[in-house]
């Protein structure tokens, strides 16, 4: 497999008049790239159609939504106003913000502490611990919903944000990202701190974590977004409409507006806005988070 990478191109390539062929090849590449660009633009635009359509519909008066047209005779923000007054959408936004923040902060703290120990300390059963965490990756959280629900019921935590966040915090992937990052950090600063009498926690807090900002950002943002979009688990533990997260609220509560498409699309757009904002602000971190977990898998 690998050997074929550097295999020479078709042997019949005339090497004698190399210059002419080369120019032809370059032209071929340029043409090819131009076609690529066209095709890709077409697909990218196609991909944006549903989102654009949602926004377009949300800006229509309800009467106009029964006609599948992009043109709006009488654009209006009224649908957004109706949604905001009919549904506790700001509450859902608040609930999502709180639960996602709890999850992200909890994950960063617990995973970075554990990863630091695994990366820097020598102790008995380190491999056992490492493999136990690795095994955790194999358990999809979804297969645990039944016992977890019972547990939250027993703890009296149903309908609290803790029930949503706590089971989402122990994720092995976050540990791997941190451990990989810590393993790659130079040790000299730590050595210096140690000579100055710093203990383990001080080294973690003052030396390693400040250097690990990119890893912190990637884990925090990726966890935040994942947690924000989680549906199944919060759907089970949050049943009070005022405490629901955005996805659960949108999935559960039907507006009093029935099938008024402008209003429905306005609620979809409002549900999308926070994440679009996060995406635009932290695009680089999110992408790095995915590429990082993925590549080193």
């Amino acid at each position: 497999m690998a050997s074929s990478i550097l295999a020479p191109p078709d042997a019949d390539t005339a090497r004698t008049d190399r210059g002419v062929t080369q120019a032809k090849i370059d032209q071929r590449h340029r043409l090819f790239n131009r076609i690529c660009f066209g095709v890709l633009i077409a697909f990218a635009l196609l991909w944006l159609v549903p989102l654009a359509w949602a926004v377009d519909t949300a800006l229509k008066p309800n009467a106009e939504t029964t006609r599948a047209s992009w043109l709006i005779d009488d654009p209006t923000f009224a649908a957004f106003g109706r949604v905001l007054s009919d549904m506790p959408i700001l509450n859902w936004f608040g609930a999502s913000l709180i639960t996602s923040t709890l999850t992200a902060v909890g994950t960063v703290i617990t995973a970075s502490l554990a990863a630091f120990a695994l990366s820097r300390m020598r102790f008995r059963y380190r491999n056992v611990v490492f493999w136990a965490i690795l095994a955790g990756i194999m358990i999809p959280g979804q297969v645990l919903i039944v016992p977890q629900f019972r547990e939250m019921d027993a703890l009296g935590l149903l309908n609290t944000y803790w029930a949503v966040s706590l089971p989402q915090i122990p994720t092995a992937v976050a540990i791997f990202i941190f451990k990989q990052f810590f393993d790659g950090l130079p040790r000299d600063l730590e050595e210096a701190a140690r000579i100055d009498g710093a203990g383990w926690f001080r080294i973690y807090r003052r030396v390693v974590m400040p250097l690990a900002r990119p890893a912190v950002a990637a884990v925090a943002i990726f966890t935040f977004v994942t947690s924000w979009n989680e549906l199944l688990w919060p759907l089970l533990v949050l049943t009070n409409p005022d405490l629901m997260t955005m996805p659960v609220g949108l999935a559960t509560v039907q507006g009093a507006f029935g099938i008024r498409y402008a209003d429905t699309m306005a609620s979809a757009v409002l549900g999308a806005i926070p994440l679009v904002a996060v995406f635009l602000l932290f695009q680089r971190h999110i992408v790095e988070g995915i590429a990082g977990t993925g590549l080193k898998g």
Binding site: P88, L90, N91, F93, G94, A95, L97, I98, G156, L157, N159, T160, Y161, W162, L238, N240, D242, L243, A277, L281
Partner: peptide, 25 residues
């Protein structure tokens, strides 16, 4: 980011106090 945080805090303050009751039982 500062802006986003301010908007977030504003929105939190804007929604009913019920939201925060989700932190307690």
């Amino acid at each position: 980011r500062g802006l986003a945080a301010a908007v977030g805090a504003g929105a939190l303050a804007g929604c009913s106090s019920d939201v925060l009751s989700g932190l307690t039982t």
